[in-house]
């Protein structure tokens, strides 16, 4: 069965939604846009599409090769689409959590977090090095179970399209039932926040249930509005630097590594890890912040 790529069909809607959001930001004075930042985000989105075109064939070949070893032969049916969508979202959660907790994957994913703005153009700020970091491997179990490759690609596209609309400050809260089950703008603002309490939280793609289930959920608090970006924000608005800066940092650290253990740590430990335990990882930052809060209360 041949299925369309949902992202291709959604692109005109993305553009219209960005135009509408810009008008709303101007009218309501809520949220932020900057023409330079938006230009970088959109350029990174285009670069990601080109990278996808270049690597798509290889990923497809790997998936088709893996499908020969599938345990089951799962047919195309409405319920298998639903199952595939759920499992793909779980795989996305695993990928996304790893993308924040393992520097190798973070080097690719950091691009998406490198803007200090949070608007619909940020949603399109995507990696150019996803294939190099091998992040597609997180979807491999779905193929090995026996879900059809076309279906996995299709629901993956739907997942990506869903995540577009949650990159906005124009929507405060959705209805309570929706907030408890689905990923929403509020939940995802927390994910993009660099406030210590928000670091490495809310990894969900579509269903926030995964974060609630695996203990990584954090609600947005009105008294602690998210500040967006990364712990050490980029000093320039340069798409090339945004796409490759963390890979360059890994290379620099590896050149200075004193042992194999240090080298492995620089690649596989969380971002901000250092061999001398002067870490700036999310956990270390949160722990220092918690201690400070405790001192202030005392």
């Amino acid at each position: 069965m041949t299925l369309p790529d949902p992202v291709t069909y959604a692109i005109p809607l993305f553009v219209l939604a960005i135009v509408l959001e810009m008008l709303l930001v101007r009218k309501r004075r809520t949220g932020r846009y900057d023409w330079r930042d938006a230009g970088v985000s959109l350029t990174l989105g285009l670069g990601s599409t080109v990278a996808g075109l270049l690597s798509g064939g290889a990923i497809l070949a790997i998936m088709l090769g893996a499908s020969r070893f599938a345990l089951l032969e799962i047919p195309f049916a409405w319920w298998t689409f639903m199952l595939c969508f759920m499992l793909d979202d779980l795989a996305y959660y695993a990928f996304h959590r790893s993308a924040h907790r393992v520097r190798w994957f973070w080097a690719s994913h950091v691009v998406h977090h490198s803007s200090q703005h949070y608007n619909l153009s940020t949603a399109l700020r995507q990696t150019w090095t996803g294939f190099f970091s091998a992040s597609f491997l997180f979807r491999l179990p779905l193929i090995l179970i026996g879900l059809p490759v076309e279906m996995v690609f299709f629901v993956g596209g739907l997942n990506l399209v869903y995540q577009f609309w949650i990159h906005t400050e124009q929507i405060d809260r959705m209805p309570r039932w929706f907030e408890s089950v689905m990923n929403t703008p509020s939940h995802h603002r927390v994910h993009h926040g660099v406030n210590p309490r928000y670091l490495d939280r809310n990894y969900a793609g579509v269903f926030i249930l995964w974060d609630r289930l695996f203990g990584t959920f954090e609600p947005e608090r009105s008294e602690d509005r998210p500040r967006y970006g990364i712990v050490k924000n980029l000093p320039v608005l340069n798409p090339l630097w945004a796409a490759f800066h963390e890979w360059a940092a890994i290379a620099r650290d590896l050149r200075g590594a004193r042992s194999l253990r240090d080298a492995a740590g620089y690649v596989l430990q969380p971002p901000g890890w250092r061999p001398d335990s002067s870490h700036d990882t999310a956990d270390a930052i949160r722990a220092r912040w918690s201690a400070e809060q405790g001192e202030m209360k005392a």
Partner: peptide
């Protein structure tokens, strides 16, 4: 797509998002 990026960036600038 490149043209669309330029158009959107120009639109953002025209709306005053160049503070």
């Amino acid at each position: 797509s490149l043209l669309a990026i330029l158009a959107l960036a120009a639109f953002a600038w025209a709306l005053g998002f160049h503070a």
